Amino acid sequence: MTDPTTVLLCYCTCPDAASAQRVADALVNEALAACVNRVPGIQSTYRWQGKVTTDSEELLLIKTTVERFDALKTRVLALHPYDLPEVIAIPIEQAHAPYLDWVRDAVKS
């Protein structure tokens, strides 16, 4: 992932609608993300501090570029209520080229 213009799909879970909207609004308003989709009603099962638990969460699907990822991650960590937020980025290898151009344009620094 060395090309700074590579478009990424980032995942981040939030504990509730309010925190998910706060993160989504900040990322788009600050041009760190071109678009954030909120997927409510997911169930996450995970091990935390030695205990397996299941919680309801909202999933954020965030579109950005490699160039903007570090700033996006820093902003998510500052806004997020979790001690250890999930911030995962996957490069998009195939997509509609005009859409990828739109993402790149929307997050130019």
Rank of each mutant, 00 (worst) to 15 (best):
33 A>H: 06
68 R>Y: 01
41 G>L: 02
37 N>D: 07
40 P>V: 02
96 H>A: 09
34 A>E: 03
20 A>T: 03
103 V>S: 06
45 T>Q: 14
74 T>S: 14
17 A>R: 08
29 N>A: 13
80 H>Y: 12
69 F>H: 05
44 S>M: 06
100 L>I: 01
34 A>F: 01
36 V>C: 01
43 Q>V: 06
54 T>Q: 13
77 L>Q: 01
41 G>K: 05
67 E>A: 15
86 E>W: 11
34 A>G: 14
37 N>H: 12
26 A>W: 00
63 K>Y: 07
83 D>I: 01
45 T>F: 09
24 A>S: 06
90 I>Y: 13
36 V>Y: 00
92 I>K: 12
66 V>Y: 07
95 A>P: 05
27 L>A: 00
23 V>Q: 00
32 L>G: 02
69 F>E: 00
94 Q>C: 01
84 L>H: 12
69 F>G: 02
97 A>Q: 08
51 K>S: 11
67 E>Y: 03
77 L>I: 10
22 R>A: 12
101 D>P: 03
43 Q>N: 10
84 L>C: 12
59 L>M: 13
60 L>W: 06
28 V>F: 03
101 D>K: 10
83 D>K: 15
90 I>G: 04
80 H>L: 07
58 E>N: 14
64 T>D: 07
31 A>S: 07
89 A>G: 08
49 Q>V: 13
17 A>I: 05
16 D>E: 08
41 G>S: 05
45 T>I: 12
75 R>G: 01
100 L>N: 01
35 C>Y: 03
86 E>Q: 15
68 R>K: 12
61 L>H: 04
57 E>I: 01
81 P>D: 08
40 P>Q: 08
90 I>W: 12
66 V>R: 15
89 A>K: 07
56 S>P: 07
87 V>L: 14
64 T>E: 07
20 A>N: 05
49 Q>W: 04
60 L>I: 07
68 R>A: 05
100 L>P: 00
88 I>M: 14
21 Q>T: 03
73 K>A: 14
82 Y>I: 10
61 L>C: 05
48 W>S: 15
33 A>P: 11
